[in-house]
Amino acid sequence: MAKEATNVVKHRNHGTGYYVFIAFVMLVCILLAVLSIIPFWIMIVNGTRSTPEIQAHAVSLLPSTHLMDNFKIINEKGSFNAFVGFRNSLIISTGATALAVYFSTLTAYAIVVYQWKLKRAFFTFIMAVMMIPAQVVTIGFYQMVYKVGLTNTFWPLILPSIAAPAMVFFMKQYMEPAFSLEIVQSARIDGAGEFYTFNKIALPIMKPAMATQAIFTFVSSWNNLFLPNVILTKGNVKTMPIMVTMLKTDIYKVEYGSIYLGLTLTVLPLFIVYFLLSKYIIAGVALGSVKG
């Protein structure tokens, strides 16, 4: 690979080696793309198949004709209310993502830009928090939520994301080489307040990093099942993924077709959010461009 990479550049006039290499790269990419898309295709296709069809052959690449039947089953069950679920999921995921992205950037900014005594200790502390195994800690978290009476509210799923150690870490790592302190200093000379400098100058520069992290947070918050399942027990506050599991509640008769349809409906909003934010992944607003 390394040799080929060298070839690319040596043959500026694009010799055969270059085209062979490009063909190879394309092949790899197409293969990986197929591997990435197939599961979605299977999921969507299964949403159009009847339960016996799925039970007979779990995987098919050709759609069937039972899409409407599956919609009917979802409606009959009554527990899957796509609108309510979508609204709840959207509130939680948007809230958690916005808070996490904004405050993590702010915290990272505090670490990168300012010199303060407890800075190193604080960073070490953040790293330590990140390393705590999550599962068992949830026991204490449930207890707290139940004791404080925050069950069936969105707060315990939104507010804790203000302290998102992994994202602070990412923002710090991203800022360190890329963020020039000169910008802050020139802002100061212009008489800008520190908070203003952060909001109006630092945040725009951090856009690509924020977009990337926003995608990750939104996806994981949207798909989160374990915690919401225990905290949100009433029908009108349930999220979309919980509603999908509700389709599986009839233990003697599982309607796989409707479950796949539910999964498809759940993943659609994610697609939209992802493709909206993905322009930052595709184009990438280079940091340096802001400098001038």
């Binding site: 527990s79 099942l225 374990f226 399942n229 009433k234 029908g235 233990i251």
Partner: peptide, 12 residues
């Protein structure tokens, strides 16, 4: 009657 329905899926 206030219903709370939680699937047994994944032991929830």
């Amino acid at each position: 009657v206030v219903e709370t329905i939680i699937a047994t899926t994944d032991g929830a």
